[in-house]
């Protein structure tokens, strides 16, 4: 039997080269989804294989890797992916947003502002922002070719007609450098403004759908909206019960069946750092009506 023996960061060199070439193309055409021959990874499709392939293709022995899922370093999937790279690449791992050189994320952008030289790698399930409006790849590809995004505006406007506001709360579409409409991955729209003019390089990997795309540093990234219905960020109107933050994206925890709830930072490292700096607990608060921040 062929004894399984694996390469640095798991992927063989040929696969890495193929992914690296796709990354360069993605950077050269910001927001355009570059097709790549995604490999089967030793974790299921839909569980971050795109992000993992991108990370494996860029990661080197001098990197310090942070992995988050839902903003947290210790959710099981984040732990599992971090362990995978610690094992296959022997790479240094960290929970510090500041110290990390490569951050792989699912569903959040850290609260701590990113800096030049860092790479943020997003795990993307459905990279095509138009997919739920038009299931055919041949059609959506033509729309991107012609920059024909009327369908997306119609969808957003139908939301307004039905609900009085744009009813998209995550995976909120953006336009990159005034050309490509792009899916920011299922991050809450609270995180959209962080993508704009960001000093770090943002790379997006969709393994099952076999696409890689990118936002170079300091790129222009605009959330789609209308003059009379401008884009607005959203966070629960509350304070973090642990660190008192009023500017972070909050998770709501249900305490009992009498409506007692508690808010805490979704970005656990941000929260811990604030607490280490002496910001204290605020106790429980009854859920208030949500309002834009």
């Amino acid at each position: 039997m062929n004894a399984p023996a694996y390469n640095f960061a798991y992927l063989d060199e040929q696969s890495k080269r193929m992914i690296r070439r796709a990354i360069l193309k993605a950077i050269a055409v910001p927001g355009y989804q570059v097709p790549f021959a995604s490999r089967e990874m030793p974790m299921p499709y839909g569980w971050g294989t795109g992000g993992v392939q991108v990370t494996a293709a860029i990661l080197g022995p001098h990197d310090s890797l942070k992995v988050i899922d839902q903003g947290s370093d210790d959710t099981t999937n984040a732990v599992s992916i971090r362990k995978f790279f610690a094992k296959t690449a022997g790479v240094q791992t960290t929970t510090s947003t500041l110290k990390a050189t490569v951050i792989q994320t699912r569903h959040r952008i850290p609260e701590t502002p990113l800096r030049e030289g860092q790479v943020l790698v997003f795990q993307v399930p459905i990279p095509e922002p138009l997919r739920f409006l038009e299931p055919r790849e041949t059609e959506t590809r033509r729309m991107h070719a012609l920059a024909d995004y009327g369908l997306m505006h119609v969808k957003l406007y139908e939301d307004i007609a039905q609900h009085g506001r744009i009813a998209t709360t995550y995976a909120y579409p953006v336009k990159v450098e005034e050309r490509y409409v792009m899916d920011p991955s299922p991050t809450p729209k609270f995180d959209n403004p962080k993508m704009h003019d960001c000093p770090a390089l943002q790379l997006f990997g969709a393994g099952r759908e076999k696409r890689i795309y990118a936002i170079p540093p300091y790129s222009n990234v605009v959330s789609l909206d209308f003059e009379d219905h401008p884009f607005e960020r959203y966070r629960h109107d509350g304070k973090c019960a642990l660190c008192g933050a009023v500017d972070s994206f909050l998770d709501e925890l249900i305490m009992d069946d009498h409506g007692r709830r508690m808010f805490m930072c979704s970005d656990t490292e941000y929260c811990e750092t604030r607490r280490a700096l002496g910001n204290g607990a605020q106790g429980f608060s009854k859920a208030t009506e949500a309002a834009p921040a």
């Binding site: 839909g46 839902q70 299922p186 994206f249 998770d251 709501e252």
Partner: peptide, 24 residues
């Protein structure tokens, strides 16, 4: 993989949806 990925935590997106639903 994609069907079973629904097992993974999605609470960030769910919270965002919950917020919108409350407002609506």
């Amino acid at each position: 993989g994609f069907v079973e990925h629904l097992k993974l935590p999605h609470y960030v997106d769910f919270q965002a949806e919950l917020g919108l639903l409350r407002r609506l």
